[in-house]
């Protein structure tokens, strides 16, 4: 078994503790993520998918339990200090980039993720040259628009750029939070494809939250399903390969009362 990248032990997150609206968003999650794992996470609205990513990334501190990255306990680390290990792509394309800054500046901000930022010049000539090269991978013509503001890009272009930014300096762990959900189907397909390429090329350990069963089945080597803050299902490797959407619905149609999930055509995994 490969080395462990991420370990969660009994992680619990309670919102509005002690009020009438108290909600256990995460309820004793145990999860071990091996190096190189590409795990898809599904679940209906409010199952705790995004909360799980936010707790891992340090945006929320868990109420109970421990989180470790590598051999390091990071339970109490705030989000900005987790950046050393973790890169994120958010659902909203505007959230992963600074719109008022140029493409090259965004890339530079991302290249320095988790590193010390000093008073040396940011976008140096050498960096610009590298950015021009890496942007060619996207095939969106962005390599000729380095100085343009990111706000001029479309949602799909912004999301592709964010993905690329996440890999400029390789993270131990990549967190994707429904990062194709806000895109139109064709763009979503493209970004989804790009995700596969980038993750497999760099052998990135990845957690991908998705609303789409097909996507959850096609991507990655492991799938977990969350329900009411708990892991309800955890399928790996071959077992996951064989699983189809209709089987999933048969099995969990009851708990997955979610239109997005059920409306997904049961095409099965390719």
């Amino acid at each position: 078994m490969a080395a462990q990248t991420l370990l969660l032990k009994g992680v619990t997150k309670i919102f509005n503790k002690g009020t009438q609206d108290e909600k256990r968003a995460l309820d004793g999650i145990d999860l071990a993520v091996a190096e190189g794992d590409f795990i898809t996470i599904i679940g209906s609205n409010g199952a705790g998918k995004s909360t799980l990513l936010n707790v891992i990334a340090g945006t929320y501190a868990p109420d109970e339990g421990q989180i470790a990255v590598g051999n390091q306990d990071v339970t109490k680390s705030p989000d900005y200090s987790m950046a050393h290990h973790i890169a994120r792509v958010f659902q909203n394309p505007t959230m992963g980039t600074a719109g008022g800054m140029s493409i090259e500046e965004n890339l530079c901000l991302a290249e320095l993720r988790g590193k010390r930022r000093g008073l040396s010049w940011g976008v140096t000539r050498a960096r610009r040259r590298r950015y021009r090269e890496v942007l060619k991978v996207l095939d969106l013509g962005l390599e000729d628009r380095l100085k343009q503001a990111v706000s001029l890009l479309s949602g799909g272009q912004r999301q592709s750029l964010t993905l690329l930014m996440a890999t400029l300096s390789l993270p131990k762990l990549l967190l994707l939070d429904e990062h194709t959900a806000a895109l139109d189907p064709r763009t979503a397909e493209k970004v989804s494809h790009l995700t596969n390429t980038i993750v497999s090329q760099n052998k990135l350990t990845t957690l991908m939250v998705t609303h789409n069963m097909n996507q959850a089945l096609c991507h990655g080597n492991r799938m977990i399903m969350l329900h009411q803050g708990r892991i309800q299902m955890d399928v790996q490797a071959e077992e996951k390969q064989k699983l189809t959407v209709s089987e999933l619905i048969d099995k969990f149609g009851e708990t997955l009362k979610d239109e997005t999930l059920l409306s997904c055509e049961p095409a099965g995994a390719p």
């Binding site: 900005y80 950046a83 980039t97 600074a98 800054m101 901000l109 930022r117 000093g118 940011g122």
Partner: peptide
């Protein structure tokens, strides 16, 4: 335009993003 100065601009532009990139905003 320095590395830290750009982080400062990003703090005003998109705080969520630059925190996720490791800057104590």
């Amino acid at each position: 335009h320095t590395e830290y100065g750009m982080a400062l601009r990003a703090t005003g532009d998109n705080e969520t993003m630059i925190r996720a990139l490791g800057v104590n905003t």
